[in-house]
Amino acid sequence: MTVIPLAYYLMLSALIFGISIAGIVMNRHHLIKALMSIELMLLAVNINFVAFSQYFHDIAGQIFVFFILTVAAAESAIGLAIIVLVFRRRGSIDIVTLNELRG
């Protein structure tokens, strides 16, 4: 059985991390997309942790992943609640309309 080299995992996770950053920075309209990008970012980090953990035979990295997954769930709950609030106030979740505070 061939083993996939560690570098491949790292490249994959760097790629996904980059995509998620681009998703947050370049996204001009939809807030849900920003929330999805945030989740994607945490998952990219998880790939890193699991890959290192497997490669070094050190279980700590995988335990860290459990905590990240739990925290990510709490994070998206808060994010969705805030988005619902914004939608109630403005009737839209377009990022362009969020311009009351500036300067």
Binding site: F17, I21, M41, I82, I83, L85, V86, R89
Partner: peptide
């Protein structure tokens, strides 16, 4: 509405920071 906008901006940048 200012408060919810502030919270949203804080949340998105904060999540980016923890990423």
């Amino acid at each position: 509405s200012k408060g919810s906008e502030a919270a949203l901006k804080y949340f998105v940048t904060g999540a980016l920071a923890s990423g």
